[in-house]
Amino acid sequence: MESEALHTTAPGGGPAVYLFVTCLADLLRPSVAFNSIKLLEDAGCRVTVPLQQTCCGQPAYNTGDYKSIIPLARQVVAMLEPADYVVLPSGSCAGMICHHYPALLKDEWHERALQVAAKTFEITTFLSDIVKAKRPERPPIPLPPITYHDSCAGLRELGIKEQPRQLLQEFCDTQVSELQQSEVCCGFGGTFCAKMPEISGKMVQDKLHNAAATGAGILAGGDLGCLLNIAGRARREGVAIEVRHITELLCGDLDGPAIGEGE
């Protein structure tokens, strides 16, 4: 049972980092999770993937169904407690664990949630601020001009702005061409995009056009929700811009199709 519950990729030293894959990476973009493992291992971490993980519960939480989420939040907190660090390739899921779990859970569970929150990080923050990751012994990965989408939860709940840019500089020797209105929401918003599609459509259209206006060949970001939204709109409008998660860029994993592109 124990081996079913946890799996540590590389034995040896380094901090025990639990990777919370996030449901969108698990289901739609496994390469994000594999690249996260690689980046963490390259940075000297012992990566553990808790095998009973599913989803952090944002969809129901954002819809206002707090009651359904409380038992899930407790389950996730308990699962993550043994870690030295918890890392997620998503700002909004990290924000859920860092800010919303402690607000949602009471008493003993509140304290436990706070303890987990204190050691939980979004991956670019973890690599840039905590382990101060350096490029492995290899030449920088050549990239076409790229632009970066700052997802709202990462930007405002966790203060992620410079970290991905620093990593792109360090790993890929690349500077980001900033898109206009970069701090304005792309219109994803979890269930918002399905509940209010027309408004969401206008927002993602603006975001896509601002991205395309930079002339960048790749739009990168740290949250799959936003990236699926923008990539889906790019496909719909026939705008030729590759949409990729930042972990793919940092690992040079650019051979497979970008998000929304065919094989």
Partner: peptide, 28 residues
Amino acid sequence: RGSFSKLPLASGWTSQRDFPSPQGRTFM
């Protein structure tokens, strides 16, 4: 094709954008 222009139960999403196809089997 890499994405769906229509998908059952996801009409809200696909009314405004394609739904990107999964990359393969799930990570798990």
